[in-house]
Nucleic acid binder design. Sequence first.
RNA 1: CGGAGUGUGGCUCAGUCUGGUAGAGCACCGCGUUCGGGACGCGGGGGUCGCAGGUUCGAAUCCUGCCACUCCGACCA
Length: 518
Amino acid sequence: MQRALSVSRMTGNRSTFPEWYQAVVREADLAENSPVRGMMIIKPWGYGVWEEIQRDLDRRIKETGHVNAYFPLLIPLSFFAKEAEHVEGFAKEMAVVTHHRLRAVDGKLEVDPDAKLEEPLIVRPTSETIIADAFQRWIKSHRDLPLLINQWANVVRWEMRTRLFLRTSEFLWQEGHTAHADEADARAETMRMLEVYRAFSEETLAMPVIAGEKPENERFPGAVGTFSVESMMQDGKALQAATSHYLGQNFARAQNIRFQSAAGELEYCHTTSWGASTRMIGGVIMTHGDDDGLRLPPAIAPRQIVIVPILRDKPEDAEVLAYGEALAKALNALSALGERVRALLDVRGARSADKRWEWVRRGAPIIVEVGPRDAAAGQVTYMRRDKLRDGEKIASHAVPRDTFLAAAPGILAEIQANLYADAKALLDSNIRSDITSFEALADYFGAAVDEDEGAAFKGWVRAPWSRPTGEALEAVDARLKALKLTLRNIPLDQQPITGPCLFTGEPAAEEVLIARAY
RNA sequence: CGGAGUGUGGCUCAGUCUGGUAGAGCACCGCGUUCGGGACGCGGGGGUCGCAGGUUCGAAUCCUGCCACUCCGACCA
């Protein structure tokens, strides 16, 4: 039997995992590269997934008291200079607009030197500075606080090396920006949104994560504290799925965001920012995909149930189509996972077998076939994308139509839960906390760092450490880098410390998560 | 920006070493037989062989330069 993908993700050869990933993106019709280097075209099925992600995450953001607004795409260069670490962190990847007009010379367009901008404009890599500028004007009194704003937008970061969804020069995201009267309130906000991301990742994306604080060398430029949710991909590498930052008063001081307190004093606000992007789609692919293509959690599947009619260019086709239409209508009237079921009757003129496999590759959670026999018997034949195969055989189930209608919402919920359980099992069984020395760490991940090193799957390590800072932390980072490892985060959910610091031998303060990362 | 590799119909590639009328499979279009587990037959459409120069009677093939893409690093959501 021919398989959906020409490459398998689990061949034991590490270099094929990226190939498998690319094959899924292509075969599932999610996105493709564009004429502009590093910028992707998100195709309708991929964008449909993003719309479901937006819808669910937007609801969670609003339920926690935030409102949406929109700020400009272009930011005056001088705004970035106001926060030293911030500009330093983004300087190397900013796209700059310097002119506002072209002119035609000998039939060719060129930049008009007379149209040079007084001040260059930056295509936003993130919007802290332009939003801070607005906050500075909006906030006068403690009664204006907290100010809780979210923006859905695109941003541009001129990346050297890009990968569809995981790292593109332009990406779509939401960025939350809030201002508070004091540190405690701002820190509570930072943690509240981290929890929103945790819940969203696990409940909606079916992607288990470990939430924690980033070590200081991994902080967002300009932040006092950065927190992340980290997810384990099927090759064992970690993906930072979302981040939440406590910015202290850094941006408030840089851009003069002040309020008059109840006591009449002028005080600087404490601000936060937090974001999640189209990268999460890459995470979903690498968490749930298999050798037949994508498997979508029902919560974010643009179509949760796809009905493929078995047609034969015969009079009985009309009956099959009518049967299918009625079934789609009945399914769309149901609710599952807290919202309306999204079902589709695929009436395109392609062969049934081709359509069926296309939906398998795209990851539709339930694929239903209705043919003359089903129509006559009042039944449906369906297959579940989470359990597509029984060995080499496709596992399909024929049940009475009413039975299926009654069961469908439950099956969708079960698929959602199954995908999560599988990913959770991978995560839980691949975090080692029995590594007690740096040598053992190097041993586990393999001292060799050449090309063909990673034959075996390597998970993550939780290890005690003394939370070094400054140069001591840089030294730790350098030692890890030699092993292609990074500090992911310091899990909020700490386990008992098992020994001294893995790096310094000093008494350990807490556990840190170590992994190879995207 | 470094290292490696690849550029030939939409896709995957052969052909390049050894210069001599541009090919295959898949996909696409038409007709027919099929269709309930990734169909088959017959017929068709589609490529200035990444770009620019050079060598040659003749270049996908040899030479020079450039460009793009992929993978691996550095950077990062």
